[in-house]
Design a protein around this nucleic acid. Structure first.
Lengths: 223, 223
DNA sequence: AGAAGTGTACTTGTATACAAGTATCCAACT
DNA sequence: AGTTGGATACTTGTATACAAGTACACTTCT
């Protein structure tokens, strides 16, 4: 919704963009792998022109990386990036929580409470719990109504997606997240912007530390 | 430095990108104006291919706008956007101030103090004062070392640049900014992350409100 | 054998030709 | 006169052909 291309005019470049993005986020295209235009173009059944357009767009989102030598590669996964990403995400979600305080109507609050309630009911199921966590953040973003914050947040979310394989979903983590979500919605309901901002910030920082802990224990991510 | 294209390999598309960006930020290309590829290509002495590459990149930075009908226009100036931009900027600068607290060496602090001192000495000259304000933020961004925050901050700065014509530089505003800068550097020096974050946030919010006040009084920006 | 130089194959960047879709303007008809 | 239809000119999207630069491998010379 905050996307620069409001309605994806069904052009070949857009299709290719979506397909490439999917392959990158799912790690189907392996980190460090180089993209050769002619081969990729034939693989995707288009000419180099729309493919290049898609590649350039992905580079601008750092989902591909232009190398100094001239080649284009899928960015490698590294631990520093995760920390930076979560920090920026914390700042953005904190801001959106703050702005949601100013804008939330009673209907909005009901929506938020409903999401948390469903989250609570399904907290024992990892994937469901995560889905409602995402839904809550999306709802807050919508209520906040800051298109730039939303847009940057979406870019951050795409980046984090690549590391999803490494994030765990331990039950105690889900309980903690649920508690934070309750606190957050309460703060928004009471129009306490400072508190909402702080709760959102600390919540994401907590997720960051947990993710870093898990990743360093597996030792799978390089650099 | 946080740019997706590390070294601008001297390709035509990059030159065109820089030139178009310059024209957009300086309002040489007027807000609302449509870009026709063939005409612009001949004007810039390149073919449509590198021009399109530059246009797409500018669209991804919201310095150009793809319309639903298919045309590309220079985005119009609107007051809501300013408010959103400053809010996100506040969140990002707040984060960078926080992270600068954790990372700043004694040499870094000396650099910050030096910038503020020069700012103080030249506070009566509007353009110089602004230059040092920018330098301070740039130094803090470097010290914070969060490439994503830097990158988003640069995009925000580009956007705000288009509204520069409307921002005033009243002497009392400059004094206030200088005072805030002193507070900010002191907070960073004392490693008080929470305070630094709050000072940076409030500082930018203050600038936002002042800018909005000036713009609404001139009544020049539309929509 | 090792190093250097040359040639070949392949990469990306650019120009141009072509196709498809859209708006505009004029004319003809109701 | 207003509206509708069609033809034309122009837009963007795509494919392909071409140019320039780079890396690699092979050969040759010391």
């Amino acid at each position: 919704m905050a996307d620069p291309q409001p309605q994806p005019r069904n052009t070949g470049a857009h299709v290719v963009y979506g397909e490439l993005k999917r392959q990158i986020l799912s790690l189907e295209l392996k980190p460090g792998e180089r993209i050769y235009e002619p081969a990729m173009a034939t693989a995707l059944q288009v000419s180099r022109t729309p493919l290049r357009e898609a590649i350039r767009r992905l580079i601008s989102e750092s989902l591909l990386e232009q190398q100094a030598t001239g080649g284009v590669i899928v960015p490698v996964l590294d631990q520093t990036a995760i920390s930076e990403l979560y920090d920026v995400r914390a700042a953005l979600e904190s801001l959106m929580a703050r702005e949601a305080c100013a804008n939330a109507t009673e209907a909005d609050l009901e929506e938020l409470r409903g999401i948390v309630a469903r989250n609570a009911a399904l907290v024992e199921f990892a994937d469901e719990a995560m889905k409602y966590g995402v839904a809550l953040h999306a709802a807050i973003a919508r209520i906040a109504g800051n298109s730039w914050a939303q847009r940057f947040h979406e870019q951050i979310a795409s980046q984090v997606e690549r590391y999803r394989y490494f994030t765990n979903n331990a039950p105690e983590r889900r309980d903690e997240a649920l508690a934070n979500h309750r606190l957050l919605v309460d703060a928004i309901a009471s129009k306490d912007a400072e508190k909402a901002a702080k709760v959102a910030f600390d919540h994401v920082i907590g997720a960051r530390d947990e993710t870093l802990r898990v990743i360093s224990s597996t030792g799978l991510v390089i650099e």
